[in-house]
Structure formats: structure tokens, C-alpha cells
Design a protein around this nucleic acid. Structure first.
Lengths: 168, 168
DNA sequence: AAGACACGGTTGACGCGTCAACCATAACGC
DNA sequence: GCGTTATGGTTGACGCGTCAACCGTGTCTT
């Protein structure tokens, strides 16, 4: 309602935002569509499976997995449920904390990620990385860091940690 | 299945891709969540409504709208259906082509976008644009152009659209 | 004019993502 | 110990996005 005095975008800003917006949507859907068509794994599946693959014994606590992929907990729970019925993953009880859960890659799950890794890599190269100069790669990394840093400020958990560290 | 010889990512590439991947997910969900909470409009709503707002008489042909937002046609149809029941938009018949459809902004829809525009702008500034140097803004625009160009190569339809946008 | 095909748009089914409410267990304060 | 609160995780409802099939209309070929 308030007639807020946010200053309008400069042409440079407009170009950056417009480009990013379009790229973001199309790139994400293209990568997801392609991976799904070629391997039967969605982007989300792949994220979970890679995290598990990289973990010792291919098992991870729910919480750890959540930190890894940065999802809402209900999203993770729903998705793991579906992946379990597909036989990619199994849920086990947690010994240290009986309200916790541990998820382990099945053999099928392991085979699926390993089979998909090359496809994913090739796609990321051909739609993004191979198109950029080394300077652009660095720029992209720096931009991401800046944005992620800003987002972390907002995150209540990290904020609390940061405030604690400052003795507030 | 094929043991594909895709070369692995260099550290630089890894950094760029990892950063982009994380930023993309979190930024998108943050912007969407925030807009939704403050204005009741989703990211998708906002895209449609802005396109209509910018159009002469606040009306657009379905096809034109599709070019504007670059969505699949069924997505557009579904979403416009929901927006219509919410009273943001109305569907009218098309005179030139009787299989076509024209969508017009309602007064409520117009009020909603105009009310949301400032929020959106402020959020985009505070989570992205204001964090970047002019050089980074340019870099982002160039990266986006490169990727969008690559994406356009793939899809004959999108290719045609891109050519149209450049005035052929 | 007739058939074939292309095109604009809609529909239904289904998996996904979010929110809010919830359950069980653990940790803390007294 | 006992009540309170915090935490890890699940559930249900609901809107979203995609795919494939479909419908009606225009267009092209002959």
C-alpha cells in the first residue's frame, strides 16, 4: 500500500535481472527435463543421491542430508518417501537419537546415480560451463557467494549463530 | 550406461557450478516466498500480471503471453485458469482467430501488480542487484545471454522466437 | 471442395513443494 | 522426578508444473 520510494532499475540492472530471470527458468527446466528423459532421475533425485553417494557408507542422517541439499524438512521427507517406494533409498532407525532417521543408498540407487553422473556433467558443460570464459566462471562464483552470503544473513539459524559469536 | 569420457570439472568450474546451483535454488525460493507473504502473489502470478500490465489495453493473446513469459502452453493455461477464478484476469474470445484466446487484466489484477511491484523491486535489489558491482552486473548479463543463446539453438521453436525478438 | 495437417488452447493425471499441524523423543529447569 | 520446551521427522491438504492426449479451428494441397 505504501507508495514506496524504491528507485527504479538502471538499464544495466535491468539487463542483468532480466537476463538472469530468463536464464534461470529455462536452464533449470532444460537440465531437469534432459536428466529425467535420459536417466529417469529428476534434478531433486540426483541431488539427494549424490549427497548419499559422497557420504561414508552411503548413509546420512536426515538432518545432515537437509544441510547438504538445503531443503525444507517436509520436502525432504516427502521426497525420500517417494524415493523409497522407488527402491532408490532405504530408511533406517537412528541409534544415537531414536527420533532421528538414517537414509541409505540401495544398490539400485547407487547404480542410478553413477549412471546419471556423466549425463548430468555433460549437460551442465554444454548448457553452461563450456560457454563461459574463465573470467566469467570466476565472476559467476563470486556473484553466487555474494548472494548466498546475503541469504545467510536472513536465515534465522545462521543469524542466531552469528549473533552468538558477536556476544549479543 | 555408456562409460562416457566427459572430462571432470576443474576447480574453477566446480566453484562456479556449485555456487550457481545453490544460489539459484535459494534465491528463487526466497524471492517467491517473500513476494507471496507480502502481497499474496506468487512469482508466476507476478510474471503474468506484469506482462499484461505492460501490454496495450492490458490485454494479450495467449500466444503472445506465452512468448513473453516463455512457459509451456499447458502451464500457462492452468495458471491462467487459477488466476481467473481468483479474479485477477479474464478470458475473452479472440476475433481474428476463433480458436485463440485473449486475456485481460481485471481492475483487481491491476491493483495487485501495482501494489506488488515495489515489493518485488526492493527484494530483487536487496538479494541480488545491490550486492553486485557494475562489472558483476554486466558479467551476469553476458553470462545469461550466452546461456540463452545456447538454449535457443536447441529448440527450433525457441530459436524462431529469439529471432523474432531480434527483429529477424 | 475434400482431406490432411498444423496450430491455439484445454484437460486430466500425476509427481513435486510448501505450509501448518502433528507425533515422539530428548533436553532443560525446578 | 515432572512439567515444559525444543528438536527430528512425518503427515495432509493444496496449489503448481509437466506430460500426453485431446478438441476445435485454420491452412495447405490437390
Amino acid at each position: 500500500m505504501a507508495t514506496n520510494g524504491t528507485r527504479p532499475l538502471s538499464e544495466r540492472e535491468q539487463r542483468a535481472w532480466d537476463g538472469y530471470r530468463r536464464m534461470q527458468g529455462l536452464l533449470a527446466s532444460q537440465l531437469n527435463r534432459q536428466l529425467l528423459a535420459e536417466t529417469g532421475l529428476s534434478d531433486a533425485d540426483f541431488a539427494i543421491l549424490s549427497a548419499l553417494l559422497a557420504a561414508p557408507e552411503h548413509r546420512l542422517r536426515g538432518l545432515a542430508l537437509r544441510c547438504e541439499v538445503q531443503w525444507e524438512k517436509s520436502r525432504l521427507s516427502h521426497h525420500l518417501g517417494r524415493m523409497q517406494t522407488r527402491g532408490l533409498v532405504v530408511r533406517e532407525d537412528c541409534v544415537e537419537d531414536s527420533r532421528g532417521a538414517v537414509f541409505r543408498l540401495t544398490d539400485a540407487g547407487r547404480a542410478a546415480v553413477e549412471g546419471a553422473a556423466d549425463d548430468r556433467l555433460a549437460a551442465v558443460r554444454s548448457y553452461l560451463l563450456d560457454l563461459l570464459t574463465p573470467e566469467q566462471l570466476d565472476a559467476l562464483a563470486e556473484i553466487s557467494d555474494a548472494v548466498l552470503g546475503r541469504l545467510a544473513q536472513d536465515d534465522p539459524h545462521r543469524r542466531a549463530v552469528a549473533e552468538l559469536a558477536r556476544g549479543t
